[in-house]
Design a protein around this nucleic acid. Structure first.
Length: 552
RNA sequence: GCGCCUGUAGCUCAGCUGGAUAGAGCAACGGACUUCUAAUCCGUAGGUCACAGGUUCGAAUCCUGUCAGGCGUGCCA
């Protein structure tokens, strides 16, 4: 908010300068307020002079001195305003401004960092969307955590969020699942069974088959229809997926079944409309979508010669339906292996007259899992994949969540099990949570000593004048803008990095200075600082779905 | 072949969308518990930002090309 204040003042100076003929309006809106890396460069700086001078062919330092003079008049805000380097104007903000951040944090408390930039825009976050063919893999885990954290961030910034899980229980995959289950069922009964060539080989299929044997005996041994096997498997697997998600504290508002698109005729309608616009045609017994009209290299099949649709057709229908349901923004979390559907869906929406800029796709790269130095390969079909459940055998949900959020979606994520488990003492998760616990502990200690925090107006916040204290206050001040940026950029990892940095600052401070001391005024000020820190740790952890333990 | 993503310290990764002298955590080495939790802290060391050009006041960041890795490129999802 201080940054915004400075930006606002710059805009005023800019307009004033234009009126006075000091410069033209050419550079309007191009200059920015930045946080310099180096403390000698002040708390904030602006490239105003360089950009204005550049457009007008003036000398940057001359423009800078004019600007600096105007800005320096705001003595309530700035200690000093300096010109440096090629024409930067650096602002040194008064300590009192930073100290007042304590008030702002504590007044807003658990709402500090929340905002209304979303303006109640309706956004649908679609993620996981794994068909119920097996337990959630590590890759799904990353997606689940990423999607949930993004949903939480959007929620905190005033969006109206719906979390949706899209699945298909009617396709080829599910038929193979049913066949696999039947094969295991017959096998358990000691009967001859042909296991499908591309069947699901995981141990969990045996578990499901065992349940069937227990519940049905051998009554299904003559059944030709795979439906009972498929349905049992689906039911069991979905229950397992829901349980896994529950452990991660992830709940969906809606499960959307692909099948319902067919029932409502929405799939056929897409084809009809594409045909009507001349964007779909028959060839070799299949129906093709003219994706070449939308910049692709080749047209794509949407209905196979067997009469079955390909995945992209219902995908297009689904996204169209989401927009028709009134969502202003569709956020999709996809694994990089599904990237191919994106251009097809976008083309489909445009073809049908919808605005595809309302769709943002977050593509996350793969998770590679290493154990004892070896990379574990993953495949749902084969038995050697690692599931989220297996991860829970070794580390808790907070560790899983934190590790998955530590990297930006674009990066491949190496999950080193040895590091996450064996060396859990050095774990960054605990490092951050420990900061929260210590802060809570300080408040408890104060209570034990019968020291209660006095009302803020009676507290001498000027006592918070150590460089470490001011730096922490600056971090606290930057938090609301960070949440906003992280939400709009769909980048929860930024919150993680902020928390790790702030935790580092706090632990260092904690080891050096006592909050509760003989100096009563100082103790009051620091107790309030500790409270402000605790609130921001709490809010930061919670906004990405991590727990904020008061003791560890 | 083509498309998307990635390439930054020994390892894993940030780098606020073009700013000033490049950042953190691990790992390595040396230190700190009569004080609010040592799951912590302090210190040392570590770099041709893959490579080559270009754009401009200014490039790890933008554009082009090259190299390397990942994922796609199906009438699989």
């Amino acid at each position: 908010m201080i940054k915004e204040q400075i930006k606002h003042l710059l805009d005023k100076c800019f307009a004033q300068g234009v009126m006075q003929g000091s410069w033209t309006a050419a550079a309007a809106g191009s200059y920015t307020v930045e946080l310099p890396k180096h403390p000698a460069h002040g708390d904030f700086s602006t490239n105003f002079a360089m950009l204005v001078a550049g457009r007008d062919n003036k000398k940057p330092r001359e423009v800078a001195s004019l600007l600096a003079e105007k800005m320096a008049r705001h003595k309530d805000l700035f200690d000093k305003v300096e010109i440096a380097g090629p024409g930067f104007v650096n602002f040194f903000v008064r300590e009192a401004i930073w100290q007042s951040v304590v008030k702002s944090v504590c007044e807003h408390c658990y709402a500090y960092g929340s905002s209304q930039v979303g303006q109640k825009r309706k956004v649908l976050v679609e993620f996981v969307s794994a068909n119920p063919t097996g337990p959630l893999s590590i890759g799904h885990g990353r997606q689940a955590v990423l999607g949930d954290a993004i949903a939480r961030l959007l929620d905190a910034t005033g969006h109206k969020v719906t979390r949706e899980y899209y699945y298909n229980d009617a396709g080829r995959q599910m038929r193979v699942l049913g066949e696999s289950t039947r094969a295991r069922y017959l096998e358990l009964l000691g009967l001859a069974a042909e296991f499908p060539e591309d069947g699901y080989q995981g141990e969990y299929i045996y578990d499901i088959a065992r349940k069937l044997v227990a519940e049905m005996g051998d009554s299904l041994k003559e059944t030709e229809d795979v439906t009972p096997f498929k349905e049992k498997a689906e039911q069991e697997i979905f229950a397992n997926i829901a349980e896994t998600l529950e452990k991660l504290d992830i709940r969906f508002d809606n499960y959307y079944n692909e099948h319902s698109l067919y029932e409502k005729g929405l799939v056929d309608d897409v084809v009809a409309r594409l045909r009507a616009k001349g964007l779909a045609y028959d060839h070799d017994g299949a129906v093709w979508f003219k994706t070449t009209e939308f910049g692709q290299e080749q047209d794509r099949v949407i209905i196979k010669s067997t009469g079955e649709p390909t995945y992209r057709l219902p995908d297009i229908a689904y996204h169209r339906e989401k927009l028709k349901r009134g969502f202003d923004w569709l956020v999709n979390i996809f694994g990089s292996d599904h990237i191919a559907t994106v251009p097809d869906v976008m083309a489909g929406l445009r073809a049908l007259g919808y605005d595809d800029s309302k769709v943002t796709v977050v593509i996350h790269q793969f998770v590679t899992l290493t154990r004892e130095g070896n990379q574990v390969k993953m495949s749902t079909r084969k038995a050697n994949f690692v599931t989220v459940d297996e991860l829970f055998d070794e580390v808790g949900p907070d560790v899983v969540r934190f590790f998955f959020l530590m990297r930006k979606a674009d990066s491949q994520l190496e999950f080193d099990l040895d590091l996450a488990t064996k060396e859990s003492q050095e774990n960054p998760v605990f490092y951050v949570q420990y900061a929260n616990a210590r802060l809570s502990s300080i408040q408890k200690k104060a209570n034990e000593k019968n020291i209660s925090r006095k009302p803020l107006p009676d507290v001498v916040l000027e006592k918070l004048s150590l460089p470490e204290e001011l730096n922490m206050l600056k971090a606290l001040a930057s938090y609301p803008a960070l949440v906003e940026d992280a939400a709009l950029d769909l980048s929860p990892h930024r919150i993680i990095f902020f928390l790790m940095d702030l935790a580092g600052q706090f632990h260092s401070y904690y080891n050096r200075h006592l909050v509760i001391s003989d100096d009563l005024e100082l103790t009051q000020a620091r107790l309030w600082l500790a409270e402000a820190l605790r609130i921001v740790f709490h809010n930061g952890l919670r906004v990405v779905g991590l727990s904020a333990p008061e003791s560890m």
